[in-house]
Design a protein around this nucleic acid. Structure first.
Lengths: 154, 154
DNA sequence: CACAACTAAGTTGCGCACAATCAAAAGCGG
DNA sequence: CCGCTTTTGATTGTGCGCAACTTAGTTGTG
């Protein structure tokens, strides 16, 4: 046996801790993002657009690990709100380029205050946060790689 | 300034890493839980019931950080599937006690294999997993405490 | 060129999450 | 005992997240 009971319990506990932590942090962001009339996933999309400029739906999906089933209706809502616009690419009529409107660009300044206001409630010091981020990234990449492998070579 | 730019970026990165990791692990569990016809949140409910025995909806909510808006329809689906039953408490007609059916109890054996099959794709050693779990728990408790404080003393 | 294989988005359906609201039951002060 | 507050769970409405499917455009191959 490669894993005895304790390790299995630990795995379960890490999964649940992740599930709980992710929702708790989304809740922490919520009141701040409510002022901008944004949800956390919408905020993530805008972060990508603020950083990269015009981006295809496909690239957004790769950056955020989301598929078109999630992004399409979400982008539609953001477009209705007037913060983004969508346009078919000239070079490839299949892909859709998402870009910020002036209003979306202006949101950036208000949004800049969000992380500052959300910080300070972590009760973890920077070195712990760094280790946490790196562990999570390692974990996620390994899991996604395994899933891709399982789908590719069943 | 108590937080300079780097720390704010780090906070954003930790939030996103959490968001991504939580979904990745749910996806890792999905094919295993599909065989039991369970979702991950449903599996969590059953874990509580297997460990504690009959439990009120309120206690489930406290154990999983979920409210009745999430639990009520979920428990209804689990009841329709025949793995749990709900019964008004005799001592307090407001509260509903959730208990396993025989079928729900039998699921426990199959479910025991789930963590084992999900493990081994973490690419983190036990000490890192332990640190990860503890950091996440500390973080979540601090965030939830702050949110409770904000709601209690606005 | 024809045509199959592939790719990018969108659509549909379902199950969470969560805010807001409601009704029933219990507890409580007077 | 009686109204008032609190507690418990259910309901409603919105927005993800994701599987499965559809549509339209592109690419590769004979």
């Amino acid at each position: 046996m490669t894993s005895q009971g304790g390790e299995l319990d630990l795995n379960k506990q890490v999964c649940f801790a992740l599930y709980r932590a992710s929702r708790a942090l989304t809740q922490l962001y919520r009141p701040l993002l409510d002022e901008l009339d944004l949800t956390y996933p919408q905020y993530l999309v805008l972060l990508v657009l603020w950083e990269r400029g015009p981006t295809t739906v496909r690239e957004l999906g790769q950056a955020l690990d989301l598929d078109s089933g999630t992004l399409s209706p979400m982008l539609k809502r953001l477009a209705t709100r007037g913060v983004i616009e969508r346009k078919r690419s000239d070079s490839d009529e299949r892909s859709v380029v998402v870009h910020l409107t002036e209003q979306g660009d202006e949101l950036r300044e208000q949004a800049a205050a969000v992380p500052e206001r959300a910080a300070g409630s972590t009760s973890l010091d920077p070195s712990e946060l760094l280790a946490l981020r790196d562990s999570l990234t390692t974990l996620t990449d390994a899991v996604n790689a395994r899933r891709a492998h399982e789908r590719g070579t069943p």
